[in-house]
Simulated assay, not measured.
Amino acid sequence: MRRLLLTSGRGPAECRIAVAHALTRLASEAEAAECDCAIARSDAERHGPASAIAVLDGPGAGALAQRWTQGSLLWVCRSPLRPHHGRKNWFVGVVDLPLPAQIPALATGDVRFESFRAGGPGGQHQNKTESAVRAVHLPSGLAAIARDGRSQHRNKALALARLAALLDGQARLAEAGEARLMQAAHDRVERGAAGLRFEGPAFRSAG
């Protein structure tokens, strides 16, 4: 399991738009990489969240996390908000949030489990299993899905662990001071070489 922080730092609204695009792209890549992805966003303003936490788990989680944390994420696009603005480079920080040795358990009364029919990650066994499980944290509304286990019982345990990692990440950000951590990540991003680069309104990969 891997846990990532995506942040716009002190960037303008365009960087929040880039975060929103990046989350959609990350979820899509996770789907194709045999990996389940759970996301918790900060309070979103009109143009997108300032930050988000993504928990990746499954066979492809390690490789996907490495791809997304190899450097800064750069979106090259004319501003959709200020058409005559000269700047076209918008940065998003993507950093690893290490998992603790032990994640606090969730109160069972705070979690609702929902089983549903779903193919495996990457489209495997599509419409042939009903053992997929969604764990919903009732106080926050956050949810995590597991569909890679061989049984519904196993998927309940996986979904619960992913949900706990998501909530623990939010708590640790709050303790460390989210604004300070976001800014440190963003400063490193703008000084470093871009690892992932996307271009245009459609957020197409550019290498």
Rank of each mutant, 00 (worst) to 15 (best):
R3I: 09
S79D: 07
M1P: 11
A22Y: 02
A20Q: 09
A65M: 05
Q170H: 08
L73S: 05
S72C: 09
R147L: 12
F198T: 06
V136P: 00
L4Q: 11
A63W: 06
G58V: 09
D96Q: 02
S42Y: 08
P80S: 07
N127G: 06
A143C: 07
R180Q: 15
L5M: 09
N89L: 09
R16D: 14
L81H: 07
E190L: 12
W90I: 03
A185Y: 04
E130H: 06
A159P: 05
I53E: 06
Q183V: 01
L73P: 07
A206I: 09
L163F: 00
G141I: 01
L106E: 02
H125N: 14
G9K: 04
H153E: 12
M1T: 12
R82I: 01
I39Y: 03
G123K: 14
I53H: 07
S72D: 07
A143E: 09
I17K: 15
H153W: 05
H21A: 10
C37P: 04
H21I: 05
L167V: 10
G71K: 04
A176M: 05
Q126A: 15
P49E: 11
L73H: 04
D43K: 03
G122R: 03
V95E: 15
V94K: 01
S8Q: 10
P59K: 03
P83W: 11
T129D: 14
A164D: 08
S8Y: 10
A157H: 09
W75A: 09
A165C: 12
P100Y: 15
L138N: 08
Q152R: 13
G177S: 10
P100D: 11
G192S: 15
A157S: 13
G141R: 01
A38E: 02
T24A: 14
C15W: 00
D168S: 06
L158I: 14
H125I: 04
A184G: 15
G207C: 11
S140T: 13
G9F: 01
C37L: 02
A206N: 13
V136Q: 01
D168H: 14
S115C: 04
F113D: 11
A206E: 11
P49C: 02
R154W: 00
P104F: 06
R41C: 15
D57G: 10
L56W: 12
P59W: 11
D36C: 14
R2E: 15
S131N: 06
L6Y: 05
F91I: 09
V76K: 14
K156C: 00
A157C: 05
W90H: 14
A44F: 06
V133K: 00
S72V: 01
L99T: 10
S205C: 13
R67P: 12
P80Y: 11
G71N: 02
I39C: 08
P49A: 10
D57H: 13
A30C: 09
A22E: 11
A13H: 12
D187W: 03
P201M: 03
N127L: 10
P12E: 08
F198S: 01
G71E: 11
F113C: 00
G195T: 04
A118R: 10
D168F: 00
G109V: 03
L138S: 13
S115G: 11
N127W: 05
R117E: 08
P49M: 00
P80A: 05
G207F: 08
R172D: 10
E114I: 03
V55Y: 01
